[in-house]
Every structure is written in structure tokens, then in C-alpha cells.
């Protein structure tokens, strides 16, 4: 049986294999035969950048920390010495490190507690318009200048600022004063206390905690929570034993952001807070006004080491098991 269409097709049979149409086709053929080649070509430039510019400059930094500064001439002596490192561990400098790490930990903890309900709502309940609103709400603060936001916060937290005014308005001045009277974290006003620094850090880094958390929670199937409840778990037990462990990679990812960003920041503690220095400020002053680049380099290595230790602990806790 041959239909007219079939006869026509048989008459002018199309070729089975087509000749390459130029350089593009030849390249395509090459990439089909060797799939690894395309990947290698794509990844080579960024890898080169990463190796030379990122890791190379880090190595240069590390090297600098083994030089020292001549106390009389103020010049860097390019001889290998551990003098700078010994200086890093002086009580005053250890104080700076401890202060920075404590602040970073406090900011991370605060951000995690504050971000979880928001991320949970967005991942579990928000749909359509609400989801768009969520993304807008989380991202919007990132669109304006960091400096403007920090200075705005200084005004908000200042003694004559809106917080004091609002506290007076609702008759909560006593509460505000009691908070400010707290040892260590309190102070003359919110804008000159550790509490104020913490609040501003929390505000500025919160989106970096919410987004990875939300992504992680979104990947936890809804049936997990139902299964836990079905087996007799209360909401709290289900959260502790199922939701949190499954969302932990997101929590850790978020905490890496908030922790490391706080460790390295030198602007917020300079504008809002006490006059006590953080690592970032120390680095800024040492390499600028003081001209002590070796000690600045040694200081800059500290956050890197802290982060490596932190990641190791997170890994031990099984944070990356579910990846």
C-alpha cells in the first residue's frame, strides 16, 4: 500500500546524514564527542580568576603577616618573623577578637531566631501575591545604600531619636532606661551601646539569613510534618526532630553569611556603638593611619581561621548531610 504522500517522499528522499555547515557545526560536533571539553572551556576563566585574584591575594596577605614593622622608622621589614603574630595575641588585640566574635555570634543567633518564622511562612504558606510581597519585603532594604541605612539607624537610635520619643509617648521610658542601664550591652543611648550595634547588624544582615532558610524549608516536603504529627509528635517535637534538622543546611548557610559579614564589617561599629574596636576597624586603622600592614594582615587572617573552625563544627553536627 503506498499513499500518494509516501510516493512523493520516496521520490525525493531526504539525505540521512547532513554535511557540517561551517565552523559552528564542527565545534558542536566536537563538544558532542567530548562533553568535558565544553565544561572545561566554560569554567577555565572564572577558575583562573578565583585562583589568581582571590586565593593569590589571600596568600599574599598571609605572607605579609609574617613580616614586621620597624618601630623607629615605621617601615615594613621584609624578613620572616613571628613577631607580628605574637603582637596579635597581646591582651588588647585578643580583646578585639573576642568582642568581634561575640558580636558575630549574637547577631547570627538573633538573625536565626528572627528569620525562621518569616522563612517558614514564606516557604509553607505564602502563595502567589503573598510570596511576591515576601520577596519584595526581604529584598527591598538591600536596594538602598548601606551607608544611608546605617546613618538612618544612628538617628533612629540616638538619644533624641524616634525610639526615645516613642518610648516617652507610650510611657515606656522606664523600660528603655532599664535596658540601657544593663551592664556591658547598655550605654548612654542605644546609638552608643553594643545593643545598638547589634540591632543595626541584625537589620542589615537579616535578608542573608532569611533567603537560604526559606530555600531550605521549601525543600522539606509537607508530608514530613504530617508524618511526625501522625506518629504522635507535638508541634515542638516535630520542629526539633524533623523540621529543624532538615532545614539545618539553610540555617548554616545563612549563619555563614551573617557570621562572616559581621566578622569583617568596620562601618557599622564605627557609626553606631561604643568606641571599642572590632576586627574590621582594627584592620582599617592599622593599614591606613598606623601603616602597620603586617599586623593588619594578621588581623585579617583571624576571620578566615574562625570561619574554617566554624564550618568544621557545622560539618561535625551533620549540617551538610542533607545536601
Amino acid at each position: 500500500m503506498s499513499t500518494p504522500a509516501a510516493t512523493a517522499r520516496a521520490g525525493a528522499a531526504l539525505p540521512v546524514l547532513l554535511a557540517p555547515r561551517g565552523a559552528g557545526d564542527r565545534l558542536t560536533a566536537l563538544f558532542w564527542r567530548r562533553p568535558g571539553l565544553l565544561a572545561a572551556l566554560l569554567v577555565a576563566p572564572p577558575l583562573l580568576w578565583l585562583a589568581v585574584v582571590y586565593l593569590g591575594s589571600l596568600a599574599a596577605l598571609l605572607l605579609q603577616s609574617f613580616y614586621s614593622i620597624d618601630e623607629f622608622s615605621g617601615l615594613v621589614q621584609r624578613d620572616f618573623t613571628l613577631k607580628t603574630w605574637a603582637e596579635l595575641f597581646s591582651p588588647a588585640n585578643l580583646d578585639i577578637i573576642l568582642r568581634t566574635v561575640t558580636m558575630a555570634a549574637a547577631v547570627t543567633l538573633g538573625a536565626a531566631v528572627l528569620a525562621f518564622p518569616i522563612a517558614y511562612f514564606a516557604a509553607r504558606h505564602a502563595r502567589g501575591r503573598w510570596k511576591a510581597l515576601f520577596y519584595l519585603g526581604v529584598m527591598l532594604p538591600l536596594w538602598s545604600s548601606y551607608l544611608v541605612k546605617v546613618y538612618a539607624w544612628k538617628l533612629i537610635l540616638a538619644r533624641e531619636g524616634i525610639v526615645t520619643w516613642a518610648a516617652e509617648g507610650v510611657g515606656a521610658s522606664a523600660v528603655l532606661n532599664a535596658v540601657l542601664a544593663l551592664p556591658v550591652i547598655g550605654g548612654n543611648s542605644l546609638s552608643t551601646s553594643y545593643l545598638g550595634t547589634w540591632l543595626v547588624f541584625l537589620y542589615v544582615w537579616l535578608p542573608y539569613m532569611i533567603l537560604p532558610m526559606q530555600a531550605a524549608l521549601e525543600r522539606v516536603p509537607a508530608s514530613m510534618l504530617e508524618a511526625a504529627a501522625d506518629l504522635g509528635a507535638s508541634r515542638w517535637q516535630a520542629f526539633r526532630s524533623v523540621i529543624l534538622p532538615l532545614a539545618l543546611p539553610g540555617v548554616i548557610a545563612g549563619s555563614i553569611f551573617t557570621f562572616s559579614l559581621t566578622l569583617g564589617d568596620y562601618i557599622i561599629p564605627q557609626i553606631v556603638g561604643t568606641s571599642a574596636r572590632f576586627i574590621g576597624q582594627a584592620v582599617y586603622q592599622l593599614q591606613g593611619t598606623a601603616g602597620n600592614v603586617p599586623l593588619a594582615a594578621a588581623f585579617a587572617v583571624v576571620p578566615i581561621v574562625i570561619m574554617l573552625v566554624y564550618l568544621r563544627i557545622a560539618r561535625r553536627m551533620g549540617a551538610f548531610d542533607a545536601l
Binding site: M224, E226, A227, A229, D230, S234, V242, P245
Partner: peptide, 20 residues
Amino acid sequence: VPPNRRNVNTVFQDYALFPH
């Protein structure tokens, strides 16, 4: 009565085993 207070258990369609 909430699910955790019922002596009734479910085998879920996707099994919903806890992967961790």
C-alpha cells in the same frame, strides 16, 4: 482532635520517611 492525639497511623503515599 489533632492528629498527634489519635491512635491512628498513616502509611503515606510518598512514605514520608525522615531522610536524616
